[in-house]
Computed example of a mutant assay.
Amino acid sequence: MFIYSSVYGIAKSKGMVLVVDTYDHIKTVFPNLHALSINSAFEFCYSSRVVYEKRACAYDIETVQFDNRKNTTLKAYLQSWKYFKEVEKEIRRQFVFKQKVQDKAQAIINNYTNEYIQHSNVSNNLQIIGVHIRRGDYLKPGKIAFGYKVATESYLYKAFKLFRSKFKNCLFLVFTAPNKVDINWRKDHIDGSDVMNVDAHERDVDMCALSKCNHTIITVGSFGWWSAWLNQGITIYYNDVVEPNTDLSRDFSEDMKDYFPPNWIGMQ
């Protein structure tokens, strides 16, 4: 999603056309993309001039300063909202899930909300906060050595507390990746009378459900990032995601504002 959005934004700014392969996975998730779809996209890319980025999670002006008269392939992660800030409305119109995915996601929210209301008798001005927890793969030795960190229990406590102080009635729907490490950690560390743990579904359904909540709390990873970006409510993010002086830290701008939008609330 980062790559598509950023390349789309760069192409628009340079008067170029974004090309994707007909069978690219992103087209199976979002059917309304405005890119030129061709069967031979991979062959096209291999025969074009290649441009590399310097940092994966920071805006790099040199990345976009290439000759727009030549076919170009961007070999990059392009994980900065700044690459597509001028086409944000267009991206939002393209990143619309299939109706069956939206229906399933809404049903999940409705089912958990209705269950909560029945047990709590709280329904007036109920604010639904989608929480995404990712830990498992970030705890692997290689990831840790590269610089990845995971969000702490104290961060989540502070994030929950902020929403509870801001709104009278909250319901926290907590999503995780479908692995035992994350599911067990959630069970052992996240609780409260206004907290409900959500069973894992297909990844597009879970992202869609998170985007349909009123607000979001995210931990680490691009799945949570995009869930929050699509949501457009208040987002709280973990701002201690990288170990200093590591290979990963050099992928970010010093203040990380190239990666995290300025209207999001960072905590640790």
Score class of each variant (00 low, 15 high):
residue 1 M to H: 09
residue 2 F to V: 00
residue 3 I to C: 06
residue 3 I to A: 09
residue 3 I to W: 11
residue 4 Y to N: 05
residue 11 A to D: 01
residue 14 K to Y: 06
residue 14 K to M: 04
residue 17 V to K: 13
residue 20 V to G: 07
residue 22 T to Y: 02
residue 26 I to C: 01
residue 27 K to C: 10
residue 29 V to R: 02
residue 43 E to T: 10
residue 45 C to P: 00
residue 45 C to H: 02
residue 46 Y to E: 13
residue 47 S to A: 13
residue 49 R to F: 12
residue 49 R to Q: 13
residue 53 E to L: 03
residue 53 E to R: 08
residue 54 K to W: 06
residue 61 I to L: 03
residue 62 E to H: 11
residue 66 F to C: 12
residue 67 D to Y: 12
residue 69 R to L: 14
residue 70 K to D: 06
residue 72 T to C: 11
residue 74 L to Q: 04
residue 76 A to T: 09
residue 77 Y to K: 04
residue 78 L to N: 04
residue 78 L to C: 00
residue 79 Q to F: 06
residue 79 Q to P: 07
residue 80 S to Q: 06
residue 81 W to S: 08
residue 86 E to C: 06
residue 86 E to F: 08
residue 88 E to V: 07
residue 88 E to H: 11
residue 93 R to Y: 03
residue 93 R to T: 00
residue 94 Q to A: 02
residue 95 F to Y: 12
residue 96 V to I: 11
residue 99 Q to M: 10
residue 102 Q to S: 12
residue 105 A to L: 08
residue 107 A to M: 13
residue 107 A to F: 13
residue 109 I to R: 07
residue 112 Y to D: 02
residue 115 E to T: 15
residue 122 V to C: 10
residue 125 N to K: 13
residue 125 N to C: 07
residue 125 N to R: 12
residue 128 I to S: 04
residue 129 I to K: 08
residue 134 R to S: 09
residue 134 R to H: 10
residue 138 Y to R: 00
residue 138 Y to C: 03
residue 142 G to S: 02
residue 145 A to W: 05
residue 147 G to C: 01
residue 155 Y to T: 08
residue 158 K to H: 14
residue 158 K to Q: 15
residue 159 A to L: 03
residue 161 K to S: 14
residue 161 K to G: 09
residue 163 F to M: 04
residue 168 K to F: 09
residue 176 T to V: 10
residue 181 V to E: 13
residue 182 D to K: 01
residue 184 N to T: 11
residue 186 R to P: 01
residue 187 K to C: 03
residue 187 K to V: 10
residue 189 H to G: 02
residue 190 I to W: 06
residue 190 I to T: 06
residue 191 D to S: 14
residue 192 G to Y: 09
residue 194 D to P: 09
residue 196 M to R: 15
residue 197 N to L: 14
residue 197 N to A: 14
residue 198 V to M: 06
residue 201 H to Y: 14
residue 209 A to D: 06
residue 213 C to V: 00
residue 213 C to L: 05
residue 215 H to E: 05
residue 215 H to W: 08
residue 217 I to H: 03
residue 218 I to N: 00
residue 222 S to A: 15
residue 228 A to S: 14
residue 231 N to D: 08
residue 233 G to T: 09
residue 234 I to A: 10
residue 237 Y to E: 08
residue 237 Y to A: 08
residue 253 S to K: 09
residue 256 M to K: 13
residue 257 K to Q: 12
residue 258 D to K: 02
residue 259 Y to W: 02
residue 259 Y to G: 03
residue 260 F to N: 04
residue 260 F to T: 05
residue 262 P to R: 07
